[in-house]
Write a protein that binds this DNA or RNA. Structure first.
Length: 225
DNA sequence: GCGACAG
DNA sequence: ATCTTGTCGC
């Protein structure tokens, strides 16, 4: 898979303009032909002190979830964390990590929002559009929109709304745990995104691939491995 | 001005 | 995101 260049020296204003321009490319209906046979889980970890980011990409077979490939890179941060502009901070290292993955990728699972974003262009949508690959956004907390209460049982959900528009789902993946926030990244419908995420949940709140990515990137970053 | 605010 | 042990609750 060819990885595009990413302009890392832009202003906050330009970043928002890029989102407004690229949001037009997002496709929010299922738009892939071949069955999904693998999935790339991606996450970024930090160190308490310092300005380095550690990005990891784990390729799993789907739906068996056997780890097929793994790539990790460290990179200096070039953009601050600003709500709504997370992609400009984390995409550079994530794209770098993807260069270490040899196989063709069927779908991307990204830590963060898809279209559940003020400009409908969270990091998962951004990555999906740049690579023209189906992607799903999966976040641990809400950035944009409102939702009603979610029933107690696993699999229950409530739509995330911005006015009248549905921009994602608050999905209960485990009883007694707060819901997670799933939204279309690119080329997948909300239904499909929710179904895939739920199929990846085993024992914990987070889907297994993202949970592993969290743990592994943290270990790599702290030099524990 | 006030409140909200992915990682 | 990150700093951190025990502890309350199902």
């Amino acid at each position: 898979m060819r990885i595009p260049e990413f302009n890392e020296s832009i202003s906050v204003k330009e970043a928002r303009e890029i989102q407004e321009k690229l949001r037009k490319e997002v496709i929010t209906v299922d738009s892939y032909s071949k069955p999904i046979k693998n999935l790339l889980a991606m996450d970024v970890s930090y160190l308490k002190a310092g300005d380095e980011l550690g990005a990891i990409a784990l390729l799993y077979s789907y739906p068996e979830l056997n780890l097929l490939e793994e790539s990790f890179v460290r990179k200096k941060s070039t953009f601050p964390y600003i709500p709504g502009l997370l992609a400009f901070r984390e995409l550079p290292p994530l794209l770098e990590a993807m260069k270490g993955i040899k196989s063709e990728i069927d779908i991307l699972l990204v830590e963060g929002q898809g279209i559940a974003h003020p400009r409908r262009f969270g990091i998962a949508s951004h990555l999906g559009v740049l690579l023209d690959t189906p992607s799903i956004g999966c976040a641990k907390s809400l950035l944009w929109g409102k939702h009603s209460g979610v029933e107690k049982g696993k699999g229950s959900y409530a739509y995330i709304l911005d006015q009248e528009e549905i921009i994602g789902v608050a999905l209960r993946t485990r009883e007694g745990a707060r819901p997670i926030y799933v939204s279309q990244g690119h080329k997948v419908s909300l239904d499909t995104a929710g179904e895939i995420v739920l199929s990846l949940v085993k024992t914990y709140r987070l889907p297994e691939p993202l949970r592993s990515a969290h743990i592994k990137s943290k270990l790599m970053m702290t030099g524990m491995v």
